[in-house]
């Protein structure tokens, strides 16, 4: 067999390992934490600018 044949098999194997790692970790994570925690993310905000908006609102009543 040529080096490139080995590389083909290597690529198949490595891709399968990476996929397996993601799927195992995904299932483990889903079974460890509650759905409420995992999906608790909400939109972020820029703290400094948010404070400035509040200050402006306060000034304008």
């Amino acid at each position: 067999m040529d080096l490139w044949n080995y590389l083909e098999y290597g690529a198949w194997g490595l891709a399968a390992l990476l996929a397996l790692h993601m799927v195992v970790d995904w299932l483990r994570t889903d079974s460890t934490y509650s759905e409420d925690v995992l999906t608790s993310s909400r939109e972020g905000e820029i703290e400094a600018i948010a404070e400035e908006h509040k200050a402006r609102e306060a000034r304008h009543g």
């Binding site: 925690v37 608790s40 993310s41 909400r42």
Partner: peptide, 12 residues
């Protein structure tokens, strides 16, 4: 840890 009850969010 963001506002509005976020317990786990994307990392800054």
């Amino acid at each position: 840890m963001g506002p509005h009850g976020t317990k786990v969010g994307l990392l800054r």
